[in-house]
Simulated scan of single mutants.
Amino acid sequence: MPDNAADQQSVEHIEGVGWPEPASDATYVIRRVHQLRRIPVGELSVEDLRLMVSQSVGTVAILPRILDLLEEDPLAAGDFFPGDLLVATLRLRHDQWSSHVGLLDKARRVAQRVDAMATELDGAQIPELRHLIREFLSN
């Protein structure tokens, strides 16, 4: 259930831009992202958010929700592995954070928390996650 007014609005509504229907031969990812832009942000699943942020779609609208989820559970998992939402978020280009200093600070706090607990984690993706965290924190 959406927590605030922004969570009750879709990315299209927040951005004030509607996208046309995707082409009939569009990939699954393109079709799905078009659909997700019309769903209220608060109703998007971890996997929906992971997909959107990995495609750099609607980041202004979805980053507050993503970071709230990551503060609760830094290793929130979409369809791939624990922490895949954090990995997708840390891969955002640096310029996508420039006008969102408060969100960047929040992302850094989450990254620091995961880095501190990473020694207790196991899994094939942990070295990549630690590398991404260190790279993110050094920028």
Rank of each mutant, 00 (worst) to 15 (best):
A124F: 13
A116P: 00
R37G: 09
G83A: 04
V110I: 13
R37F: 05
D84L: 08
G102L: 14
W97N: 12
S45K: 04
I30C: 09
S98M: 15
I133P: 00
Q9V: 03
G16L: 14
I133R: 00
T119L: 04
G18M: 10
F81D: 06
E43Q: 10
R38C: 00
F80C: 10
Q8P: 00
G83Q: 02
I30G: 06
H94S: 15
G42D: 02
Q9S: 07
P82L: 02
D25M: 04
D68Q: 12
G58V: 10
T27H: 13
P64A: 12
P2M: 04
S54M: 13
E72Q: 08
Q9A: 08
L69D: 05
D105G: 15
V46M: 01
N139V: 11
E72Y: 10
P40G: 03
E21L: 11
I30A: 09
L86C: 02
M1F: 06
D48P: 06
T27E: 13
S98Y: 15
N139Q: 14
V11M: 08
L75H: 01
R50D: 05
E120I: 04
V33D: 05
M1Y: 10
I39Q: 03
I126G: 00
Q8G: 07
R38G: 02
R91F: 07
L90C: 08
M52R: 08
D3E: 13
A88W: 02
L132V: 00
S99H: 15
A124K: 11
I62S: 06
I62H: 07
E47C: 06
V87N: 05
A23F: 07
D122R: 13
A23K: 09
A77G: 09
A61F: 11
E43A: 08
P20S: 09
N139R: 14
H131E: 11
L70A: 01
L137S: 06
L85E: 03
P40V: 02
E71K: 02
E43L: 06
D25N: 09
L90I: 08
R50A: 08
I66L: 03
D68K: 14
L36E: 03
G58M: 10
I39A: 01
D73V: 01
G58Y: 10
L92S: 12
G83S: 10
S56K: 15
H13T: 12
G18C: 11
R113A: 00
H13F: 13
S54V: 06
A5L: 14
Q35P: 04
G58A: 11
